[in-house]
C-alpha cells in the first residue's frame, strides 16, 4: 500500500513536467524575445583575448517567421552593407560590389564568434522542434532539434527562466552533440511597448578560445513592414526603412 502511495505521489510530482507543452513554451520564449515583426538597433562587439575590440552597428527589421534584413550603419568600412534572410536563403549586399551575393548561414559577415544565422536570427520555433523539456530549479531546459539540415546548428539546449519565459543561456551543438558556441542572455530591460527582454547577448566558443562577441540591443519596437522590403531588389534601399 505504501508503495502504491509513493508511486502515486511520484506521478503527481512528475506530471507537471510532462504536461509542459514544449512547442508552446518555445513560441512563448520567441515572442518574449521579439515581437513577430519589429525593428531594432544592435551593436556587435568582437573582443579579442588581448582585450582589443571591433564594433559594428546594425539596423535590423524582421517580419513574420522567416524574413529578416539588417543594414550596417558603422563602422565606415561596413556602412551600407546589408544582409537579407528569407527562410533558408541568405544574401549579402556590398555597395562596392553593387549586387547581392548568396551567403551561407555558417559564414560570418562580421568575423568573430557570431555567424550569419546568429545575426539574422529567426524565431527558434520556426527552425526547431522541441524534443523534450526538463525543469531545473527556476529554469526550464528545452532540448531542440533542427527541422531541416539547412539550419546552422543541428541541436540547441535552451535554459529559460520559468517566470519570465526568457532564455538565460543557449548551447549550440552539432548533430554529434559537439558544442559550437554558447550564448548568454543578460541584463533584462524594458524596451517599452510591453517588450521586456535581455539587452545583451554574450557568446563564446570552444572553437575561438579566449574570444568573445557581444550583441547589445536598443530601440527594439514592434513594427510592420511590406513584404517587398525583404527582397533582393530592395537590398540597396534598406536605409529608406529607417
Amino acid at each position: 500500500m505504501l508503495k502504491i502511495i509513493i508511486v502515486f505521489l511520484s506521478l503527481l510530482i512528475a506530471l507537471p513536467v510532462y504536461a509542459i507543452d514544449g512547442t508552446a513554451l518555445l513560441k512563448q520564449v520567441d515572442r518574449n524575445l521579439n515581437p513577430e515583426s519589429y525593428e531594432s538597433y544592435r551593436k556587435l562587439i568582437n573582443i579579442e583575448p588581448d582585450g582589443s575590440k571591433k564594433e559594428f552597428t546594425l539596423f535590423t527589421v524582421k517580419k513574420g517567421v522567416d524574413k529578416v534584413v539588417s543594414l550596417f550603419l558603422a563602422p565606415a568600412s561596413e556602412k551600407g552593407r546589408s544582409t537579407l534572410r528569407l527562410g533558408d536563403n541568405m544574401w549579402l549586399y556590398i555597395p562596392n560590389v553593387g549586387k547581392p551575393v548568396r551567403i551561407t548561414s555558417l559564414q560570418s559577415v562580421v568575423g568573430g564568434v557570431f555567424n550569419n544565422s546568429d545575426i539574422l536570427q529567426l524565431d527558434y520555433a520556426a527552425e526547431y522542434n522541441v524534443e523534450k523539456v526538463e525543469e531545473k530549479g527556476s529554469e526550464y531546459l528545452l532540448y531542440l532539434k533542427a527541422k531541416t539540415k539547412t539550419v546552422a546548428y543541428d541541436r540547441l539546449k535552451i535554459w529559460a527562466d520559468k517566470s519570465k519565459k526568457l532564455p538565460t543561456k543557449i548551447e549550440c551543438l552539432t548533430e554529434a552533440n559537439m558544442l559550437i558556441k554558447t550564448l548568454y542572455f543578460k541584463d533584462v530591460k524594458d524596451f517599452g511597448g510591453g517588450i521586456v527582454r535581455p539587452a545583451v547577448t554574450e557568446t563564446d566558443s570552444p572553437l575561438y578560445k579566449g574570444y568573445k562577441s557581444v550583441m547589445i540591443f536598443a530601440k527594439l519596437k514592434a513594427k510592420d513592414f511590406k513584404d517587398e522590403a525583404f527582397t533582393l531588389t530592395f537590398m540597396s534601399n534598406i536605409e529608406s526603412l529607417r
Binding site: Y41, K43, T57, L73, A74, V214, I216, A218
Partner: peptide
C-alpha cells in the same frame, strides 16, 4: 564593458 551610443543610430 559595453555601451551603446544611441546617437550612432
Amino acid at each position: 564593458e559595453y555601451t551603446f551610443n544611441i546617437s550612432e543610430t
